[in-house]
Design a protein around this nucleic acid. Structure first.
Lengths: 224, 224
DNA sequence: CAGCAAGCTGAACACGCGTTTAGCGTATTG
DNA sequence: CAATACGCTAAACGCGTGTTCAGCTTGCTG
């Protein structure tokens, strides 16, 4: 037994890679048989190595999680979520990982929530750095702002993917490029020249804690 | 034979309504048997009336499409997408339709693209009205801005749904309430007090065109 | 009333799915 | 060399799916 993570040429690692590719391209409902065909093995071998499709998914999640954590520590700290996505999109090898992330965000689950929280933290740190440098305006609720910006950005990317690339998506680098090309300017404009000229709307919304004070589910949007 | 579309108490209409409910709550992968159980009929009857599950889905799409069009003409013109969603969320009967819309946006397809374009038009009109009234600042690319605002809003709502309510979602009104409670203030703030204090980023991005201008892969930057 | 069409059902069919199982080939090992 | 263990495959199993089919009611119609 070669115990997986040492060789990258192990059959088990090859299966995992094929699974990440297939999950990214076709979504998590892709069949075990399709993955096995992509990996050049029999369907039974996948179960033999991973126990079940769910556990295979779990190991893929962990792999992607480690992969992204590796990228983050590799590069300089203080990266925005979008920049990370761009970086992911540029390198060919990263394409499947990026696709996997988007699929994960589309389907929910533990990895999705994990990555979202991770990105929120990054964005918050990035904004704080910018604020100190003077390029980013301070906010009355920095944590909530970082959360909102992350949610709208990732959500927009998700929506763009589902709308313009239904079914299996062959090339996620192109998707991200399209997305940037379409939304970069209006986003930059909206966050540089304020959309609302009237402050009434903002002042109406009580700025005490970041929420509207509704008792609804404790989203905990306030201070992080 | 009651000839379908006249009575709303027709079995066929009841099946359609049950299908909309199930699709909204459990997603489009819900089984025909589950729908039939919810409607109090046999699975075969669904096929007998609609031919196939795909055609049932098609009729549900059309029904929701008509429903939303009805709401829009019913209310005053010039509604933002968010307001429409809010309105949808408030009335109990609309809950399943709202859920259906979100599911549709999650899965892609013709209805999703249709509704998205429809909302973009609404938002653009809404912004134009506000601009004329002086509450909304003019944009160098109004169409692109409306598109961006729509995409980020709907995308954020989608992401919130998938992250915080995986699997079947019983009450979409609450989801929207949570979403508003969490993101209303930071969104308002970000669009009233500019996030970027430096105009350099915006000026770097060439503002040449109004539509979906491809500004190409510009330099990476902040999350909006 | 007889007959026929339509609403409707319960059982069955064909298929794809994840998973199991029996067995093959091969390499390490006592 | 014989034995054991492991990587691996082909075939099959059980299940859930969308769909079909034969037949039962029911109500309109000539």
């Amino acid at each position: 037994m070669h115990s997986g993570s040492k060789d990258d040429l192990t059959t088990k690692a090859r299966i995992r890679q094929a699974a990440v590719d297939c999950f990214a391209r076709e979504g998590f409902s892709v069949s075990v048989r399709a993955i096995s065909e992509h990996a050049g093995v029999s369907p039974g071998l996948i179960i033999h190595h991973f126990g079940s499709k769910a556990r295979l998914r779990g190991e893929c999640d962990a792999h992607v999680r480690r992969f992204i954590a590796g990228i983050k520590t590799e590069t300089v700290e203080g990266f925005s979520g979008t920049s990370m996505l761009q970086q992911l999109a540029e390198v060919e090898q990263y394409a499947s990982v990026l696709g996997y992330v988007v699929r994960s965000l589309q389907s929910g689950g533990a990895l999705a929530a994990d990555l979202f929280e991770l990105t929120v933290e990054d964005v918050e740190r990035f904004l704080a750095v910018g604020e100190e440098a003077g390029t980013i305006a301070p906010s009355r609720a920095p944590a909530a702002r970082a959360r909102y910006l992350t949610s709208s950005s990732l959500g927009s990317l998700m929506l763009h993917t589902t709308l313009h690339h239904p079914g299996h998506t062959p090339d996620f680098r192109r998707v991200v490029q399209e997305w940037i090309a379409e939304y970069m300017f209006p986003a930059l404009e909206s966050y540089t020249e304020p959309v609302f000229t009237d402050r009434t709307l903002l002042d109406t919304c009580t700025p005490r804690e970041g929420g509207t004070g509704d008792t609804g589910g404790g989203a905990g949007a306030g201070t992080g």
